[in-house]
């Protein structure tokens, strides 16, 4: 990409030349930050749709009829609880398998004593059940009953995803703010360096908007050229993290990017270019007012 031909020799100024590198580096960081936020958001959405599973454990009862009656009563009570999709008693064999060597068995490998009963409860997607209330109600029937969410690792993942989403969004905003400050500083430095040429342009009748447009055009070029490079490098980094790392046994990110995530990521370089271009123009316009 050839730089635009400008009346001001901005491409020859070290401060201005740095602009393309800066735009590239910051676009790279902004893309990664936006990707982290987008992927984390997608993960949170998936987690929100994943049903909550809770298992209620009822203590062993020697009388099978009584055990059956108690389980049916608890099941009926649980099914009336808000958000419950369905319930399913866990088969005795499965309970026995879960308890393993702690179960005293006869020659036929049958348990010698009654086993606790387990009731799996599945909540509707998006439901946020009050497990304390559920347990309180169950204990009104069976005082020693227990209840726990059977996928506790999900809440850890959810918390992690929330943090990554917050950090990613904050980092993206931070990078854009840094871009704003750095481009303003570079533009003002360039303006000071080219004060004499700016004076000549004014003497030839150039209005301030003509001069400011020179900075704007250069900044747009720097943002697009540097930003393209930063974008390609950021995509390569994401590709490596998402698709190559797992092949070598590194499962860094449990994410499944959505098409919308890629749209958001693709929007970062144009947004960065827009910020750089507008900032350069506004900083130049303000700086020109300062110059005599």
């Amino acid at each position: 990409m050839a730089p635009p031909e400008l009346d001001l020799p901005l491409a020859e100024t070290p401060a201005s030349r740095f602009l393309a590198w800066l735009a590239g580096g910051l676009t790279y960081l902004a893309v990664l930050a936006a990707a982290a936020a987008a992927f984390a958001h997608g993960t949170l959405l998936r987690l929100a749709e994943r049903p909550v599973l809770v298992t209620v454990a009822l203590p062993a009862v020697e009388d099978p009829a009584e055990a059956e009656r108690q389980l049916a009563a608890v099941r009926a009570l649980v099914e009336s609880f808000p958000g419950v999709a369905w319930t399913a008693p866990v088969a005795a064999e499965e309970v026995g398998r879960l308890l393993g060597p702690r179960v005293d068995r006869n020659e036929d490998a049958q348990p010698r004593q009654a086993l606790p009963r387990l009731l799996d409860i599945r909540f509707l997607p998006g439901a946020e059940p009050d497990l304390g209330e559920l347990l309180r109600r169950v204990r009104s029937l069976v005082p020693t009953a227990l209840a726990e969410e059977t996928s506790p690792e999900l809440s850890t993942l959810e918390e992690l995803a929330r943090r990554v989403r917050w950090l990613g969004a904050a980092a993206a905003v931070g990078v854009f703010l840094l871009m704003l400050v750095a481009v303003s500083a570079i533009t003002r430095t360039s303006l000071d360096l080219h004060e004499e040429t700016v004076g000549l342009l004014r003497l030839l009748g150039a209005p301030d908007r003509y001069v400011a447009r020179q900075f704007e055009r250069f900044a747009a070029f720097a943002a697009l050229s540097g930003g393209s490079t930063g974008f390609v490098l950021a995509l390569s980094t994401l590709f490596a993290l998402l698709y190559l790392a797992p092949r070598f046994g590194f499962h860094l990110l449990p994410v499944e990017p959505r098409p919308l995530d890629w749209v958001l990521i693709a929007a970062v370089p144009p947004a960065a270019a827009l910020v750089v271009t507008l900032t350069a123009r506004i900083a130049a316009a303000i700086g020109l007012r300062r110059l005599h």
Partner: peptide, 22 residues
């Protein structure tokens, strides 16, 4: 400044030191 610029466009100046853009 804008109106001053419009007036300047009606004036041609040959500087002693040329002031060309290299």
């Amino acid at each position: 400044r804008d109106r001053l610029g419009r007036l300047r466009r009606r004036i041609g100046v040959v500087f002693q030191d040329f002031r060309l853009l290299d």
